[in-house]
Design a protein around this nucleic acid. Structure first.
Lengths: 207, 207, 207, 207
DNA sequence: GATGAATGAGCATTCATTCAT
DNA sequence: AATGAATGAATGCTCATTCAT
């Protein structure tokens, strides 16, 4: 009976996880499309084809559901960037691949930008944003890489932490400003060549 | 008698305008602190010390009040940047003054960043953001200046429009990312020296 | 000084009365067009071209204003019916003239039907309606006339009070039902020939 | 299993319908007693013993609830009149039974008169009144009967449509005028003998 | 006396959450 | 476990009335 119940539990858990992911996908789309307050949990339930009570059973309350949706979206970004990084071996090219990977990700998932904005609007006190939390962890990983690029004489010997901040502001800043400015439907990744050129070579004429 | 009635009229109008501005200041703070949906118009009225009906008399409805508050905040930014620009004469220094002026403005008015986020969360369809609309107008003004800097051999001959985009993404991006990342309470304007250095001189070692 | 003040008072009173009547005319139209609850006193003030406070000065509050408007409308009906009656000398013809006079009045003042409905909706407890109160007074006047018609062998010897009720139900009933049924824009007075024929001669074939 | 689920479904639906009817009964009484604008939906909910949200779940909004209440009341009148008609076989007696049936209905349901008044006050533009809409459909049914009475020499050969109007004005007019005049608490149905006598035999002495 | 800005009570409506089935 | 009917707290907005000018 133990075995049976365990098996049942396992099977259920798998079904549960499946169901949870379906709900998260629907939640990302719905929250992004309508905004948090304008979203009726019923709408998400309808999109998945389950009852409202089921959504509550899986995520407890609307806020937890929203946060889970944001984490879900963030994990997708991380996976996409990791995949982009794997395509290169040289540290400099890896860095570039990551940056364009991020831009490309938001080009293909504009709804996730909306979700990030919603998160901030809703949890203005929770800082850093759940979405950018993981960045902290990634920083240490990159510090070594940047230091190597400095040691090899490729990039200038500036404080590593500040270079990292500058890169983040550059990439995510580009993404945000593009979103706030709106309008331009051409992919941001493609419009960023000059931006990267400036980033690496500067605005000034070299003398 | 004409004078009197005129004076009276003026005084009344002035009182009205005064009242409206008081309400806007309260609205900016309250919307920024609580968010749009979490803000009861009563709370704004209380802060000003007037009745709720008075707020409605002045701005019609909550949404219009919110948008007026955003416009009010934007006008403050424009004024601050204009003031910063006036302190310099050289085009390059003017440009730098504007950039640090913007960063300083958001350092001293962090609530306005929250307001911009709220605006986006609320009016996800209205693009560009009311707050950044005026940027479009400012662009033409700066294009000439940048061209002059290129002609004089100061900065590299890149497409002017793209330089402008890069500068905007840099400055507003820094502001947004700083906000989303949270935590760091040291003024952004002061933490931006490396950023500006990279912007002008690039990351690469010059050869 | 007494004289002066008296004169002033008189002059003011005349102006006051004038103003009051203007307000009442506006009130009848506005209340009839929008309904009581849907009417903002400001709208009535605007129509007259005075301030809202002035309306309140003249009538105290919205309810009193409404009742005054109803009484004003009722007085117009009484005047119209009296005028119609004067055109005839024979009691039977007078009676007929009154009945068609009432129908004609409501044909030309459909808004007053609306006003009566509003009055009832609003003051469901006040009975009889302010508008029909005066009917009671008129009844005694007509009782004699009807008795004379009975005595002269013109109409059947039925209880006078019941004849009166029947006539009232006939005329006002026609008016009300016409209003509730809606649609028919042809004057009711003209569509009432058969009705009067039935009233006088009955439905049955005389044997 | 089909049967069970069907039964369950039916039971639920039946419970829903039951609940809706309870709400409608409460709504008729409450709207009639207070008037539309003076009625807080909470009051209706309280009378039924449910939450306000439940009322909204069943009827969507206050206006829809009101209209449903009017239709509910109208259906009761139709049922009552149909029942009255069934008691007679002779066309003339049927007609009489219908007329007194209507008067009796409003004698026992004075609140429904109030409801009709409210409907008009509220929807002054919707004509004919929802309550009297069905009359149109009944008219055709009666036209044949009246024609038969004319053909058999019972009633005078007047235009059938005009006879119908006269009858309607007579009956509903009596009801309305009685309501507006107020006061008289003796059943209208009983006070209508003279009225019907006049209707059939006329006021004039037959010669 | 006239004005109209200010006031605040009052109510419809929504929707997160619960819980009986 | 899943469902969805029921709940009721929360809040935007209107407008009669007041009163300072």
């Amino acid at each position: 009976m133990d075995t049976t119940s365990l098996a049942t539990e396992r099977r259920e858990t798998a079904a549960q996880v499946e169901r949870s992911l379906e709900i998260l996908d629907a939640a990302v789309l719905t929250f992004a499309a309508n905004g948090y307050n304008q979203t009726d949990v019923q709408e998400i339930a309808d999109r998945v084809g389950v009852g409202k009570g089921t959504v509550y059973r899986h995520f407890g309350n609307k806020e937890a559901l929203f946060l889970a949706a944001v984490a879900h979206a963030r994990d997708k970004l991380i996976a996409a960037v990791d995949a982009a990084k794997e395509t290169e071996n040289d540290p400099l090219l890896e860095m570039r691949a990551c940056m364009t990977g991020i831009l490309r990700f938001f080009d293909s998932h504009p709804e996730i930008v909306e979700l990030i904005i919603e998160e901030r609007a809703l949890f203005r006190d929770r800082r850093p944003s759940l979405f950018f939390e993981h960045e902290e962890k990634r920083k240490a990983e990159w510090a070594a890489r940047l230091q190597a690029l400095i040691d090899s004489g490729t990039i200038r010997p500036l404080p590593v932490a500040e270079i990292q901040d500058t890169l983040s502001r550059f990439v995510f800043g580009a993404m945000f400003f593009n979103y706030f400015e709106g309008g331009n439907k051409e992919p941001l990744a493609e419009r960023s060549q000059t931006m990267l050129d400036v980033l690496f070579n500067g605005l000034f004429v070299k003398k």
